[in-house]
Amino acid sequence: MKVLTVAVPVYNTEKYLKRCFDSLLIDEVLNDIEIVTVNDGSKDGSLALLKEYGDKYPETVVVVDKENGGHGSAVNAALDKASGKYFRVLDSDDWVSSEDFVRLVKKLREEVADLVITNYSKEFVYDGRTEKNEWKNLEDGKEYIFDEINLELLDKEYFVMANSVYKTDVLKQSGLRLMEKTFYVDMQFNVVPITRVRTFRYYDLDIYRYFIGRPDQSMNLDNFIRNRTNHEKVVKFIIEFYTGLEKEFYIRLILFYTLITHYYIYCYYPKKGSKEMYKEIKAFDVFLKNKDLQLYKMMNSIGQIRYNRKLKFIFVKISPRFFSRLVQKVGTALKKKGLK
């Protein structure tokens, strides 16, 4: 049995595939890993390149070719094919640190935890910067019982696709099916399988390299605005999903940060106000209040959201950026005078 399945969803990333595969295909772990790469209806030369890898490494690389269904559908397809003991996702424009990856695979041979977490870095290649995301309070190599952890130990971080390696059985038993043709489904990946996790272990290895090629990519302002209904769809899914679960405390943490992003899409990013967006955010706010009052109230700890609510989101219609800057300036001034 293979130790690890690496799912590589591919959509029009021909120019990045070499870097991605070069980082994984290391002789000493070839027998331990299985790369299930799913071509999600690419229109460039990605499929031909994947087939070359498949032909060159028939025992390691499994190529699945399917019609375009979005990132989520490609991950689902890879999970269906996965035969490794553990499973992780590597987006095809990202890569792994080969040295640490080899170390991880060797550790996974004897691993028993339901979830293994590592560090990851954001690589801002347009200006040569690296931003490392590491678990400062966790102990290298230690196994933790999920239900016994103190959230402070996680230091406002949570388990995301880039830092998580799940037991394949755990993923399958959780019933994880990412939504098709929908953006932001990685949030589902962050939430759904955690319900089945009893133990997790942390290794101080810097595995995942998250590629950021353009200055606007990390924030993806335009994309957030364009795909905001997708964002709402996934947020609502998580709210529905987590209510009443045992691990509610942890998922609420994830939801809290996700909701901040969701409100910010409306209350901060647009250059000009929009009547449509005004209606949407008002409706969403009512939905949240009715669905989960506790979570609704939690969001008031964020000034932007609190003031927007008090003003009934009127500035979303006029100029969210102006209002946002005003709130920030007033907040800073009050802070200086010790009035806040």
């Binding site: 980082s23 290391i26 090629g213």
Partner: peptide
């Protein structure tokens, strides 16, 4: 490779 120390280091290591 582009302007990423990590990417460069990875290939040097390989």
């Amino acid at each position: 490779v582009s302007y990423s120390k990590s990417e460069i280091k990875n290939y040097l290591w390989l």
